[in-house]
Design a binder for these strands. Structure first.
Lengths: 264, 264
DNA sequence: TAGTGGTCTAGACCACTTC
DNA sequence: AAGTGGTCTAGACCACTAA
């Protein structure tokens, strides 16, 4: 016998999925269900909390509990790294990206801070630096229509970026072509990448920063960028609101029995 | 002013991260904190629930609330699809995979059912079939040491697999070489893939199936497998317990200004 | 059987939104 | 000011685990 709040939550979830309550529409008020004999206020509230934790609804005081809109997923494919965008284009890569996907860019949609910090062990390892070495950290918080969608912090070796405009702590994208253009101009052309993805629940702090509703996981992205000769020129850590993104990768199946250039 | 339960949860989370409570160790009992004046039982319980939802602890009745062990992440790189494994090898690919990663395979670690079903719209679209067409669905629930880790359901076009052992509803892997070997023997050699990833909270039903603790998201994987001439031979949907997996992709940056063979 | 977390109630009061 | 969800209490009782 499942608890009373679970049964109520399941019943409501079923109705949401059946379309009886549509995205944007309110669920019955808590007091209403209490009067209908669904249980005490705490019990009904527990059911509503469960639905919230499952990402189905969002509650707000004074307003009500409404069925969550499915934010359109943004698909992230490797085409977003197209060299033509940052090498030849006049627009900053991520703005071009938005133009292509029909989204608008507003001033203030990206804030960034640049600082010289002691590398985290993970960062030092990626760059092949000893523990405790210093790196430049360029942290961005990216928003869309004022809502934060993700953070992205890039770590660079000082000798790669010292004196470039990457190190200039002006808010906004790093000028024409973005960070990749700067590295390219400095003689370090991005040519290859490794992306690692994992998902988890945010810490309370992360939830606050990204204004995540309860029940929204985050995807942590660890990205290593190499030049053609294998030099690591950027290691970046991103934190994405899970409901806003999907990742897409195309690849040929490897064949270790035949491939000559087999990279571990 | 954050609510009392939030403050308590933050205090405990801080201690966990500081190592005062280590993985596997119990947190103070709820009644204990009530006596210490942290609030009423419901308030303290709310704090504990929050920690659980954040994936930090697991609670069990009669036992206590303990700090969650970090299950070792399994890294999924494209090497797991190595043709040599399923084409030439004597072992089923995923078993070879476990051998390579030092994990044991136990009989019963995979259950599968095969059935002919009406294709979901998504599946039909992937295979280029009209809505309502029939496909073979091969659903697996994969466990490790008795704990479910993920599900994977593959959909095939009937004309590709009819009469092969893929359609034989015997539990366990689809014989020597697995599903890819069967397709290969039938003249459809897997050559290219597209993988799409997204994360979300599980439904109550999925949480039950995968025995997920509260606060554990899932990663949904949509995989399309093609032959060298672009024929779709498998569309698969997987649901993975997020804390057990990380995905890893290597790729060359595209260059639309120079690439001749630019696939959309 | 003792001890743990979990459910549930009834009601007071708080914080925020909307009019 | 009225109405919403959220917090908090005090206490009874339930369900599961371990010795």
């Amino acid at each position: 016998m499942a608890p009373k709040w679970r049964e109520l939550a399941d019943k409501l979830a079923e109705r949401i999925n059946a379309g009886e309550y549509r995205p944007g529409q309110p669920l019955p008020q808590i007091r209403e269900l209490v009067e209908q004999g669904e249980g005490s206020k705490s019990t009904v509230l527990a059911a509503y909390k469960a639905l919230e934790a499952e990402g189905l609804v969002t509650a707000s005081r004074g307003h009500g509990t409404v069925v969550r809109e499915r934010a359109p997923l943004k698909r992230l494919g490797i085409a977003r790294y197209d060299k033509a965008k940052w090498r030849d284009g006049d627009e900053v890569a991520f703005i071009a990206d938005r133009v292509a996907s029909g989204r608008k860019y507003q001033r203030g949609d990206q804030t960034q801070t640049v600082s010289r910090v002691t590398a985290l062990p993970e960062v030092a390892a990626a760059h092949g630096l000893p523990e405790g070495a210093e790196v430049y950290a360029r942290a961005r918080l990216v928003k869309e229509d004022g809502q934060p969608t993700h953070t992205l912090t890039s770590y660079y070796r000082p000798e790669h970026v010292e004196g470039t405009r990457l190190v200039d702590p002006t808010p906004g994208p790093a000028g024409r072509g973005g960070g990749f253009r700067v590295l390219y101009d400095a003689g370090y052309e991005p040519d290859e990448m490794k992306e690692e993805l994992s998902a988890r629940m945010p810490t309370a702090e992360e939830a606050k920063l990204l204004k995540l509703p309860p029940g929204e996981p985050v995807v942590e992205l660890h990205r290593t960028t190499y030049t053609a000769d294998g030099t690591v020129i950027e290691y970046a850590i991103g934190l994405h609101a899970a409901s806003r993104f999907a990742w897409e990768y195309d690849f040929k199946l490897p064949d270790s029995a035949r491939d000559k250039e087999d990279r571990g």
